[in-house]
Design a protein around this nucleic acid. Structure first.
Lengths: 159, 159
DNA sequence: TAATCTGGTTTTAAAATGCAACCCTATTAG
DNA sequence: CTAATAGGGTTGCATTTTAAAACCAGATTA
């Protein structure tokens, strides 16, 4: 049988992956962040099959990550632009890029150098931080269980 | 034909997605961060097919996101534990969770409450920051092109 | 000795993917 | 005015992946 979906999963990570967790969607979002807006440009830059690109764009529009804008200009009639929800994927995309650059660096070319437009200086590595802005590892955090405040049972859950 | 792979892509995001960008891998990593280590536990918590779990665990071990440890204890003979590379996915997983909680909140239950173990206070939203620690949007950054320092040509590239 | 647990592999059917070909509208070239 | 071309898709088909369930084998427990 076919791929399982997580639409109604109690885990928000699973629900997020349901919207942008397949092979192409996040790459489409990435290129949209770099300024790509037109169907043919996505297609050529990504090397994605046209029907798959159609499907991904439609799904991203359905999920309100992109919006489809009718621009009546010569030839190119539609543009796909990021919504606020889509732009909000920025930390995820950058964190993925940094992880890839760190652990699977391209042998020949250097890592992409992203900089703050205002200062011209490089951005920081994306980290999880506490209220004071100190970076935390997975071992530095705990889940404050909801039931902790009321009743202690049924701990294990997907998510 | 089958799924395209990005092993040799010049884009580090594509290479990262090649390792953890499918439907299950990141959920496996997520549960590993929550403490899951044994095959059967992953299988039950995720509701994943056993053959797919086998494949994902093997791929994650191949990519050095997990390591397979032989523990000769009663019954459970292997454990899958996160490597440093795997633990380094922490910001990505948390950013995904926060994005999911923000844009697709579960109707009934509240968002997972992650806290700093030391202070007991909630963690911050994961953001991209400049050198001073100020949060940046996608519009606040630019790519310092490598060729910018030498020669200005051939701008467009996957990644 | 039988039942059970762990960690798989095999089989089978349903989806997803990639490629190429086709379609329709709007623009540009001649 | 007609032909060629670009944008944005849709359709058909062969190949891969996936999911589910059945099966398997070594070690432990009953």
């Amino acid at each position: 049988m076919a791929r399982k979906r997580f639409d109604d999963s109690s885990c928000s990570v699973a629900r997020a992956l349901n919207e942008v967790g397949d092979w192409w969607s996040l790459l489409v979002v990435l290129h949209a962040m770099y300024g790509t807006r037109r169907f043919v440009d996505f297609q050529q830059e990504l090397g994605i099959a046209r029907n798959i690109l159609c499907d991904r764009l439609a799904r991203l529009v359905d999920n309100e990550v992109l919006k489809k804008v009718d621009v009546g200009e010569h030839g190119s009639r539609f543009e796909y632009r990021l919504t606020e929800k889509g732009r909000d994927l920025f930390p995820i995309v950058i964190a993925l890029r940094q992880w890839g650059d760190k652990w699977n660096p391209a042998p020949d070319q250097p890592a992409l150098d992203l900089r703050d437009r205002a200062s011209g200086r490089p951005i920081r590595p994306v980290t999880v931080q506490n209220a004071d802005g100190d970076s935390l590892t997975v071992r530095d955090v705990f889940v404050r269980d909801d039931s902790e405040a009321t009743l202690r049972k049924d701990k294990k859950q997907t998510g």
